[in-house]
Write a protein that binds this DNA or RNA. Structure first.
Lengths: 261, 261
DNA sequence: CCGTAATACACGTATGTACGAGTTGAGGAG
DNA sequence: CTCCTCAACTCGTACATACGTGTATTACGG
């Protein structure tokens, strides 16, 4: 094992021992002494080095894991998280010119960046919308919606789950209610149906994933998600779609261009 | 103490005991049985209820804390996190019409939402930019920048830290290099100096806060941050400012409007 | 030479104990 | 009645121990 030069504890410090240890390892990571993917000394080694109990070491390691700096692999060790190549989700990804090329936004964007896109777990149902979706779509209580849920993967790695809601009055019986929505995706279909799209509004939250999201996106502990809700408006000001997506925050950087006017 | 009806453990389950306990409490929170701000049963009570060791209870509580669902208060108990009123950070906040009203974006926006804005810890220095800032500003190696760092608070609660970088060639000796940048903020000053702003590009990451950020924003464990880097471009395509901000994710929802064209 | 079984090592889960430190409320002193 | 002290309760930190489960290496037998 390559010797990692860790400082000794400062017994005069007020700072808890396990925090001091976490600080030492964090510093080593931030300064590159411990490189990405490299193995952090084992619990036993750290116990020996610092002369403390295992619980203290585990507390320290848990701090780092909660910060998303390390991942523990059962039976193998604790490793410095390697940050996967981050993709940029650009604000013009729904521009009509892309749609007219016949590809859905995700496919076009991923292939353009040299990745192999795939879509997974497509489920389509018709149901009553939640209160918040109904409000965004401007629907009355009992108007049903078509619900399209699916999962996006890049090179087999899940990166995003998405659920679209379209008023059933618009989508029922059209290709929007089929698993394969055809070239250009559902936005192309909506325009063909005479709903000329004018703009989108995206609302972005950041939070820790729920249990299900952690599973669906194969997220390591300490990795938050973007929760993005996009509403599509037509030129006559009507909302025709709401898309609720959860995006792994280490797969993407979001990018927006804003006019200064 | 109001009795919280928690299920018993399932001894046949593969799921670790502390995870089962975390699941029970999480369910109670999600179903509203445990309301926001309410006290989770104490460690001693949970030990008694489940008949397990304290470490097992603490592991369970730590899971929930890592998910941002609860906060522990030393000497008082563990409480269901209450989500503060979330504010919307709109994409038109830097529109010229706002600037011309003579208020900086943050002040105008916060007062509009009925909060008391304040700004804190203003520090201005001149220094050599980091490689990434230099690249965004299109500067050569040794061209210095003016660095304006500050912290924004709403009703005394810190919500955002921001650091702006402006080429020293532009800002040196102007009001941009003073603590009070005057009405309309530095964007107003830049336009007065003949740098007519055309558009901004914002890049958004989501991640767990670093130690310093956690302190500066008074963040509870389990709360991620937005890391937003905005670059301001003039009509002749030159970058004149880079603003690097870290925003508490439970203070804000970001909102953007995108054209469909 | 190869496959398999034993082994060492890694983290995961759980028990029990002890003491420290912040908060709160009850009860006694003034 | 008020103030203060103290006890009780809370979470925070740290120790010691034991066993489970997954991984990788080594040694041995075929």
């Amino acid at each position: 094992m390559a010797e990692l030069p860790l400082p000794d504890l400062d017994p005069t410090s007020d700072r808890a021992v396990f925090r001091q240890i976490a600080d030492h390892i964090r510093d080593a990571i931030e300064q590159g002494t411990l490189a990405e993917g490299e193995k952090v000394p084992s619990e036993a080694q750290l116990m020996q080095h610092y002369g403390v109990a295992r619980m203290t070491i585990r507390n320290a390691l848990q701090v780092l894991q909660g910060e998303g700096l390390t991942v523990a692999e059962h039976g193998r060790g604790v490793f410095v998280r390697s940050h996967p190549p981050v993709r940029r989700l650009a604000s013009d990804r729904f521009a009509r010119r892309h749609r007219e090329e016949g590809k859905a936004a995700f496919i076009a964007e991923t292939e353009g960046a040299g990745g192999k896109p795939s879509v997974d777990a497509i489920k389509i149902t018709e149901e009553a919308p939640s209160a918040s979706v109904a409000a965004l779509l401007g629907l009355t209580d009992d108007a049903p919606v078509i619900r399209r849920s699916r999962r996006y993967l890049i090179n087999g790695q899940p990166v995003e789950t998405a659920v679209s809601y379209i008023p059933a009055e618009i989508a029922r019986g059209t290709r929007i209610a089929e698993p394969d929505s055809g070239p250009g995706g559902i936005y192309a279909r909506l325009e063909e149906l005479g709903h000329r799209l004018d703009h989108f509004v995206e609302e972005i939250k950041s939070r820790m994933p729920l249990r299900d999201e952690m599973r669906a996106l194969k997220l390591a502990p300490g990795i938050p998600v973007f929760h993005l809700v996009r509403t599509a408006y037509t030129t006559d000001g009507k909302a025709v779609e709401v898309c609720d997506t959860v995006i792994s925050s280490d797969a993407y950087v979001l990018s927006y261009e804003l006019p200064a006017r």
